[in-house]
Design a protein around this nucleic acid. Structure first.
Lengths: 111, 111
DNA sequence: TGGATTGTTCGACCGTACTCGTAGGGTCGC
DNA sequence: GCGACCCTACGAGTACGGTCGAACAATCCA
């Protein structure tokens, strides 16, 4: 039954930050930001189904994503409007930071 | 001996976000941003010393603050320059978001 | 209808995070 | 030197987070 998405006004910064503090979830958010709505599967394919469900729940409960069923799939999308309204500029700064972060991550592993 | 502060280039976004995902630490960062360098004590006075030390360590290891001894005190300060260089705009967006967040927190508890 | 596909739920395990009390090590002022 | 002060280090307890497998529910397609 898709646990409750929080209202825009109920989105708490602590929850958003700890949700995005996990590299898996941060990566998911980057993909959603770049490519729009996407099905659950296909992101993070090397994890077990139940682990994925856990991560969707964290992102959903913290107010970062919408999750809506469509047939036998679940579609995920960023709550960009709500996040922008609640915390102006934060999402863009986070996405830019994630990009910078990923760049050094790549060069780190190459060194 | 003050565990190692990470170099600017070694600051990882995941660590910063999960450090700031804790309300106590987020509050500390807000105070440091507003008031500059401050002694350890006086922030979060209702926690035990050892708990505070734990939080300073998390903030320090994630690259969010500098910690330097001065006499028998330890002074904390935001690593604003490093954070701005590494993740431009992120810190300001986070501080603004923290402000918005604290505003609703207050009205929540008042309701 | 029946099988394949997709997600969720549940219980479990393990590691990490948060908290505290106690003990120890510097530093300041008398 | 000595006590008071500030913080750190360590150990312990509790809670939470991330991961998995197995079982279940819903949907699609042949």
């Amino acid at each position: 039954m898709i646990t409750q998405h929080p209202d825009r006004d109920q989105i708490r910064l602590e929850n958003v930050l700890s949700a995005l503090g996990n590299p898996m979830r941060l990566q998911v958010v980057r993909v959603l930001a770049a490519e729009g709505e996407r099905a659950c599967g296909g992101l993070l394919p090397e994890m077990s189904r139940s682990t994925l469900t856990h991560h969707w729940r964290v992102l959903r409960d913290s107010g970062v994503i919408w999750q809506r069923p469509s047939g036998r799939e679940n579609l995920l999308s960023l709550r960009r409007e709500d996040l922008d309204a609640r915390f102006p500029g934060l999402l863009d700064a986070l996405l830019a930071a994630a990009e910078a972060n990923a760049a050094t991550e790549k060069s780190d592993s190459a060194s």
